[in-house]
Design a binder for these strands. Sequence first.
DNA 1: CTGAAAGCGCTTACAG
DNA 2: CTGAAAGCGCTTACAG
Lengths: 332, 332
Amino acid sequence: MPPEQATLSDIAARAGVSVSTVSKVLHARTDVAPATRERIARLLADHGYRPSRGSGVVDLVIGSLNSPWADALVTGAVEAGAEADCRIVIDSVPDSADVLRHTLERIMARGSDGVLLVHQMPAPETRGRLAAKRIPLVTIDPPAEPGAGVRSVGCTNWQGGLAATRHLIELGHRRIATVTGPLTTWSARARFDGYRAALLAAGLPVAEPLIRRAGFFAPDGRAAALALLDLPEPPTAVVAANDAQAFGVLQALAGRGLRAPADVSVTGFDDTPVAAWAAPPLTTVVQPLEAMAATAFRMLRLHGEGGAAQPEQVELATTLTVRESTGPPPAG
Amino acid sequence: MPPEQATLSDIAARAGVSVSTVSKVLHARTDVAPATRERIARLLADHGYRPSRGSGVVDLVIGSLNSPWADALVTGAVEAGAEADCRIVIDSVPDSADVLRHTLERIMARGSDGVLLVHQMPAPETRGRLAAKRIPLVTIDPPAEPGAGVRSVGCTNWQGGLAATRHLIELGHRRIATVTGPLTTWSARARFDGYRAALLAAGLPVAEPLIRRAGFFAPDGRAAALALLDLPEPPTAVVAANDAQAFGVLQALAGRGLRAPADVSVTGFDDTPVAAWAAPPLTTVVQPLEAMAATAFRMLRLHGEGGAAQPEQVELATTLTVRESTGPPPAG
DNA sequence: CTGAAAGCGCTTACAG
DNA sequence: CTGAAAGCGCTTACAG
C-alpha cells in the first residue's frame, strides 16, 4: 500500500492520460476507448483510489434489522469496518426489488466503497451500473444460489442441519421431527437436507408427518410444534431451522406442560447471544454471523486485486454448541 | 427550507464577509471576531449548511452492539435517518473514556452532521471541540443525570418500575422481589425507585432480602433469582430490571422445577422483540427504544434553530405490556 | 481580525 | 475518443 492516497492526477500521470479521462472512467462514461478504460481501471484498483472527500464508507444493505440475527451481522460488519478505519452505514430495506433498486441508486449517487448485501439479488442491470461505478458488492447469506460473477459469503448450512440431527440420533432419538424455514430460501433447504441426510445415514425413516414447513419466526415454530405434539406418535426431538423457531417450540412444550429435554429435545440454528437465554439454554448450531459479515467486508476490498484467483463463493464452517435443551429420549 | 444547498460563498455574501472567514468559523479557528463568528454561525445554522461533498452522515456511537436492546436503538436511528435522507454510521466503542475520545476525534476529522451517543458522557473539553466544529450531540439513555447544556433522550424509568410492581400488587402479590440493574446507572436507580414507591403506596414493606443488586445480563438475573428462591420465605413475584435478567429468572425457575406464573410471576423491562419469545411470553415494561433513537435523531437537526426554546431533556413514556409471565400468586 | 490570492481535487462542456 | 480550459467548492498561508 502506498502511504499517500493517490489522486486523480497521480493516476492520470501513470496512465499517460489527462485527468479528464480518468474522471470519465470513474463515472462510467461511455466515451472512453476500451483499452484506455481497462488500463485506467486497473491503476485505480491497484492504488485503491478513493475520492479525496467523502466515502471511506461501506453500505450494509439489510432486509429487516430487528432480530438478533441481523444484529450479529451488523456487529460483525462494524467491527471489521473499525479495523480498516472504514465507516459502516446501515440501510434497512424492505423485501422489495423496487425499493432495493432505489436504495442502490442512492448509494451510487452518494458514493460508496462497497455494498454488503443481505437481501435478494438486484437485477443484472443494476449490478452492471454498480460495477461500472466500481462499487464492489458481496452478498451475505444469499437467499438463492448466487450465479456466476456474484461473490457471496454463507455458512455450511447442510453440515449444520446434519450435525444437529446426528447429535440427537447419538443421544438415542428415533422419532426426530424438523421445523424447516421457507424452502424457497437456499439456507433453509440446505439445513433441511442435512436433517434428511443424517436420518438416512442412520437408517432411520424420513417420515412426512414429522416435517413441518414454516416461517422463520417464533410463532411459526410454536404452531409447528403444537401440530407435532398432536400427532398420534409425537416426536421425542425437534430440529428447528433457527433459534427463533426453537424458542417457539419451547413455548409450545411449556404450554402443554412438557419439558425440554426430559420430554422432548430441541435444537436451534444461529447461536445469537439470546440462544443462551432460553430455559433451558439452547443446544444450537453456531452460524458464525459476525465472522461472515467481517469476511464479506474483507472481500469487498480485494476487488480487482487478485484477478481471477479469488474465490467467488465462501462458506464458513458451522459448529454445534451443546447446551441443555437436548438429552436422551424419555425411557419406554 | 431553501431548495438549494447553501454554499460557503452564499453564506459569505449574506454575512458580508469573505469566503475565507466563513471557512474559519466552520473550522473553529480562533482568529475571528466574536461578533462576526456569531453572525456567521447563525447564518450557517439557519441555512442548514453542509459541505458540498461527504457528510449527510450522522454517527451513532454505542457501547456494546450485541444485544436486542442495542439492536432496537440502531433500528430506530436508521429508520429516522432514512426518512431524512441521512446515512447513519455505527461506531461501536468499548466502555472507555479514552477510546470514546479517540472515536469522537475521528468523527470530527472525517466530518459528521451529528452524534447520537449511547455511552458515558465525554469530557467537557471534547464536548467543547465538538460544539466548536458545529457537530451537535444528543445522548440516549444517559448513564448518569445529564448536566445542563447536554441534550438527552430517555424514558420514564421510574414510572415503568412503578407500573410493573403495581400490576403485581393488583394481582394480589405481597412478597414481591426485585432484581435491580447496576445502581450506578441512572435508569436502574429510577426503576428500582419505582418498585419501592409502588410497595410503599400499597402499604407493603420494602424488605431488604427481597432486593438483589445485579448486572444487566441473563446470568445475573438467574443467579439473583436462585438466591431469592433459597430464602426461607421466597417471593411470589420478581420485578426484573430488564428483559435479559427476566429470561435469567425464568431459567432459575425452570431449574428448580417451578413455573411462571403459577408459582412465581416475573416482569421484565424493555420489550425488545425477543420478550415475546420467552416461555411463557414476558409481561414487561415497554421502553420505546426505536422512538427514543428517532427522537434523538430529530433533536440533532433542531440544533441552534429554536434558540433556547427547545427542551434539553426528553423522557418518552413507558407502558406495560401484559403477556403470560404474570398471574395471581399461588393460593395459600 | 480580515480577505485577496494561490492552489487542490475534482467535474464538465466543448473543440478537435 | 481525448484533453485543454473553465469552473466549483473549499482550504490555507500570508499580507495588511
